[in-house]
């Protein structure tokens, strides 16, 4: 009995020491983190053209100006919406086409880099590295280079976004593939199906809901990306925004119209895509239960 209480006492002391040590480690990590944040903020503030504290009260000047003008010239807004609608369609098309092309490329790349499905198993690390590199390239890098070679327009942006998308989706797709059952593939192999038949008939039906869900998420991201690339000269609504901004004070009504269009588009696409993604991940089980 005495032995036991002694054991508990030792255990307790041990536990308390462990907790103390853990708390101390947590405290040290927290202190380092806070120091990093504060010094980082100070460096960033120092290297910025305008300071944080001096700029803070001017933060709302520009939005106020733009929105003020928009309210003032509210009757011109519908005309501006009509005028900029084609470029909005172009931005959406850039995102759509690049998501589609990127997803198709990602599908092939991911199948080639998943164990058990790869066409050439020895090449798996090579395809993985290719995807890593494709994923690491920011869209703007490729877009700027291609704009120099091809001139402005939607094609450089489409290629740039598709390239990055292929890498980013490829990684997600290959994670999905790893959870897919290999039995259909083996079954197809036993009846003499070649690689593409095995993949299209054996793997794709299993993984397509997840693929679609990821592709939709990517489409949301790519709409933003294509708007940004427009700003550096790749056509679409971003390009119009840059022009509208350059008119300067007193003529921000066009910029305001573009802001509103872009905002509405992003919100709508987000909502629609999250609705469908929800259905893709949860809706299927409901249907099964109903059937």
């Amino acid at each position: 009995m005495a032995d036991l209480t002694g054991g508990v006492g030792a255990l307790r002391a041990d536990y308390m020491a462990l907790t103390r040590r853990k708390r101390m480690m947590d405290g040290i990590i927290l202190a380092i983190f806070v120091a990093l944040m504060v010094s980082g903020f100070m460096i960033a503030d120092d290297r910025n053209a305008g300071g944080f504290w001096s700029g803070l009260h001017r933060l709302f000047d520009f939005p106020k100006e733009v929105l003020g003008e928009a309210v003032e010239k509210v009757d011109t807004l519908p005309a501006h919406f009509v005028k900029f609608f084609p470029s909005l369609v172009e931005t959406i098309n850039i995102a759509g086409a690049s998501t589609l092309i990127g997803a198709l490329a990602a599908m092939v790349l991911s199948l080639l880099s998943t164990r058990g499905m790869a066409r050439w198993p020895r090449m798996i690390p090579v395809f993985r590295r290719i995807m890593d590199i494709m994923r690491a390239v920011p869209e703007i890098v490729i877009a700027l280079v291609l704009i120099f070679v091809m001139g402005g327009g939607p094609v450089p942006a489409m290629i740039a976004i598709a390239f990055h998308t292929a890498g980013a989706l490829g990684k997600l797709f290959s994670e999905v593939n790893e959870n897919a059952s290999l039995k259909p593939v083996e079954g197809l192999q036993s009846v003499g199906a070649n690689w593409s038949q095995r993949m299209i008939l054996g793997v794709i039906p299993q993984v397509s809901p997840n693929y679609l869900s990821y592709a939709l998420l990517r489409f949301e991201i790519n709409i933003r990306a294509s708007a940004i690339l427009g700003f550096v000269g790749a056509g679409g609504i971003g390009y119009e925004l840059k022009n509208a901004m350059s008119w300067g004070k007193g003529q921000y009504d066009e910029a305001a119209a573009i802001f509103l269009l872009l905002f509405a588009t992003i919100i709508v696409v987000d909502q629609v895509s999250s609705h469908f993604r929800d259905r893709l991940t949860h809706g299927k089980t409901d249907r099964k239960v109903a059937a």
Partner: peptide, 28 residues
């Protein structure tokens, strides 16, 4: 949250650059 996400990083960058000028702080 929807508003902050919906006004894209592009627009935030433009708005913030007006107040703080170009530099890393604006980007952050």
């Amino acid at each position: 949250f929807d508003f902050f996400r919906g006004v894209d990083a592009l627009i935030w960058t433009i708005v913030l650059a007006r107040a703080f000028g170009p530099g890393p702080l604006t980007g952050a």
